Amino acid sequence: MTVAFIALRAIVTRELLRFVRQRGRFIAALVRPLVWLLVFAAGFRAALGLSITPPYQTYITYETYIVPGLCGMILLFNGMQSSLSLVYDREMGSIRLLLTSPLPRWWLLTCRLIASTLISIVQAYVFLAIAAAFGIAMPVAGYLFVFPALVVAGLMLGALGLLLSSVVRQLENFAGVMNFVIFPMFFLSSALYPLWKMAESSVLLRDICAANPFTYAVELIRFALYAQFNGAALLWTLLAGFVFMALALWGYDPAKGMLRQRG
């Protein structure tokens, strides 16, 4: 157990130091949601009227509605960024060196997952602080309740990143894979508009959004920001996380997964 936690501390410290040194990564992670919050939301405000819907107790502005979705965007993009770094480390050989250590492979990958999730949570809280500075504040209790929701959502999306890193063979192919994963997951969800609004234009698109695991991650964050519990969102987010992690571990198994096929 001591050796396992030493490995956890070492991997988390390495990822945190890498993140601190890459200031552009931190700025880019905040610019994307802030552009949506301060620019696009201003244009969509008049076009997308929102009625009272749980967890909200009154009418809300469009900016208030999309804040949980933009927190999910930060977790999603950071999970993909972590996946990109794994592909890079594999090409450089460092990830293979890590996986040859005597510790179980699942624990080493879990350590990477925990490290990327912690970085995502820091970025999400910085974004929430900036949003509050612009007058888009949540209930005080929500900032505490949202922490476990961010942990669960971050682990699920980080596990998806691990899965992608086990599938992508070359660094050059990663951008295309990200475009086929990130944008459909983000836009076909409840991050930017509620499902009932989507159903007004297309029931099929509403059903696709309802089947998207990212939708449940966003709703888990949304309810937590208002100190409310969404059991269905938690269940489906955890289930998706377990499935993604199991597939990622299979992909990194040299005897069964994608690493063997590359050899």
Score class of each variant (00 low, 15 high):
Ala129Cys: 06
Arg222Asp: 04
Val151Leu: 01
Gln22Gly: 11
Leu160Thr: 03
Glu200Tyr: 04
Leu103Ala: 03
Gln261Ile: 14
Ala28Tyr: 11
Gln261Arg: 12
Val140Asn: 12
Tyr143Thr: 00
Tyr56Glu: 01
Ser94Val: 11
Ala191Phe: 00
Ala224Trp: 05
Thr237Trp: 06
Met245Ile: 11
Leu150Gly: 09
Trp236Arg: 09
Ile95Leu: 15
Leu171Tyr: 08
Phe244Glu: 06
Ser190Met: 01
Gly161Trp: 01
Leu17Asp: 15
Arg222Tyr: 08
Ile11Cys: 02
Glu200Cys: 03
Met138Gln: 01
Ala141Trp: 13
Met73Ala: 07
Phe174Glu: 02
Tyr193Asp: 10
Gly142Glu: 01
Phe180Met: 08
Ala129Phe: 06
Trp196Phe: 14
Lys197Ser: 14
Pro54Tyr: 02
Val87Asp: 03
Gln123Glu: 07
Ala132Gly: 10
Arg23Lys: 11
Leu204Met: 10
Leu128Arg: 02
Val243Trp: 08
Met178Asp: 12
Leu249Lys: 05
Gly49His: 13
Phe244Arg: 03
Ala149Glu: 08
Lys256Pro: 08
Ala240Asn: 07
Ala175Tyr: 13
Phe244Val: 08
Gly49Leu: 12
Trp36Val: 10
Val218Tyr: 05
Leu76Ala: 03
Arg23Gly: 09
Ile27Gly: 02
Ala141Phe: 10
Leu204Pro: 14
Pro68Ser: 07
Ala137Gly: 06
Phe244Thr: 05
Tyr88Arg: 15
Arg14Trp: 08
Arg45Pro: 12
Tyr59Ser: 09
Phe77Ala: 12
Val181Ala: 02
Thr61Gln: 13
Val152Cys: 08
Ile121Cys: 03
Val12Pro: 09
Pro184Ala: 08
Asn212Gly: 01
Val35Ser: 05
Ala124Trp: 09
Ala4Phe: 13
Ile136Arg: 04
Met138Leu: 07
Leu164Ala: 10
Gly263Cys: 14
Ala28Cys: 06
Phe44Gly: 13
Arg23Thr: 07
Ser201Ala: 15
Ala124Arg: 03
Phe147His: 13
Ile95Pro: 13
Tyr88Gln: 15
Val203Ala: 14
Leu70Val: 00
Leu235Ser: 05
Asn179Ala: 11
Leu16Glu: 08
Val243Lys: 05
Arg45Leu: 02
Leu109Arg: 00
Val3Leu: 14
Val67Trp: 02
Thr58Asn: 15
Met92Cys: 13
Phe186Glu: 00
Ser190Trp: 04
Trp107Leu: 02
Ala175Ile: 12
Ser82Leu: 12
Pro68Asp: 04
Leu97Gln: 15
Leu113Gln: 11
Gly49Cys: 11
Ser165His: 06
